[in-house]
Design a protein around this nucleic acid. Structure first.
Length: 271
DNA sequence: TGATTATGACTAC
DNA sequence: TAGTCCTAATCAA
């Protein structure tokens, strides 16, 4: 279940397993049968990620666009290739292994023009070298919308999801309800820089760890607590538990149909 | 067996 | 804001 760091890992994995060689493609589930047939036998030229979107470019200039949504997964395996289990939308096979795609929000073939349209509607991605945080700032600094909602808007900033959103606001001591236009440029720069560091670490490790060394379980003399998502965090899904820094009970609320977590002590209003 | 939940995002009203 | 879509794991009954 993916935020942007997962997609960058997946792009690298596709490149490693399939890059530069012909790829076999099929749709055991049947829902992408026509698309898979067009990919089948093509050479994977490039694998890229922008925000939560995976882009696999084949040698006919067409690009497979996959968006996992909440449920989607890619699962890689080594030969021998087993019978598909469950609803496999797309299976890619190559000399180096295979990959099964289940439950994607989007799985489609795009022409180069379609890829440009997609990229144009995405904000800067902290994990991309070509990212320009000023583009996000231009939107945020003019917006009355809460910074919590803006950080989840992929046309403002592409890649962070609910966990990075909650955690970066905690680490920067920012009230989630603060309107974007009330955020100073300096604080936005700090948020961006923190996301770059946190998400790059996520790409490296494959999990979301946001707790600073001085607040880790070892440093604080408490038992380790790793969330289901596989990382150590300050506030995400910790509602009711004491804040690791100040002891205040972590708060939770539903905002735009998503769960929001924050520490009222460390992230006071007008902070 | 069925309800619930999830790191997302679209559309319609 | 509500409804919809996609899947699998978990937990209750």
């Amino acid at each position: 279940m993916p935020e942007g760091h997962t997609l960058h890992r997946l792009a690298a994995e596709h490149q490693r397993v399939f890059g530069g060689r012909p790829v076999g493609a099929g749709s055991p589930q049947g829902r992408f049968a026509a698309g898979a047939a067009e990919i089948d036998g093509r050479v994977l030229v490039a694998a890229d990620a922008h925000g939560k979107h995976l882009l696999l470019e084949f040698d006919d200039d067409r690009v497979l666009h996959v968006h996992l949504g909440i449920y989607g997964t890619w699962r890689f395996g080594e030969p021998p290739v087993p019978e598909p289990q469950g609803a496999v939308r797309l299976r890619l096979t190559g000399a180096g292994g295979y990959a099964d795609l289940r439950g994607p929000n989007a799985c489609e073939l795009l022409e180069p023009g379609g890829v440009k349209l997609l990229r144009d509607r995405l904000g800067p991605d902290p994990l991309r070298a070509d990212a320009d945080p000023d583009r996000a700032w231009a939107r945020i600094s003019r917006s009355r919308t809460s910074i919590a909602a803006l950080l989840m808007d992929q046309s403002v900033i592409a890649g962070p999801g609910n966990i990075y959103r909650a955690e970066v606001l905690f680490r920067q001591g920012i009230d989630p309800m603060l309107p974007g236009r009330a955020l100073s440029r300096e604080r936005w720069s700090a948020v961006w820089a923190d996301l770059v560091v946190l998400m790059a670490e996520g790409v490296r490790s494959g999990r979301i760890d946001t707790v600073r060394p001085e607040h880790t379980p070892e440093a604080m003399g408490r038992p380790p607590r790793v969330d289901d998502h596989g990382g150590e965090v300050y506030v995400y899904r910790r509602a009711g538990s004491p804040c690791l820094v100040c002891g205040t009970a972590v708060a939770a609320a539903e905002l735009a149909a998503r769960n929001l977590f924050w520490c009222p002590g460390c992230q006071p209003p007008a902070g």
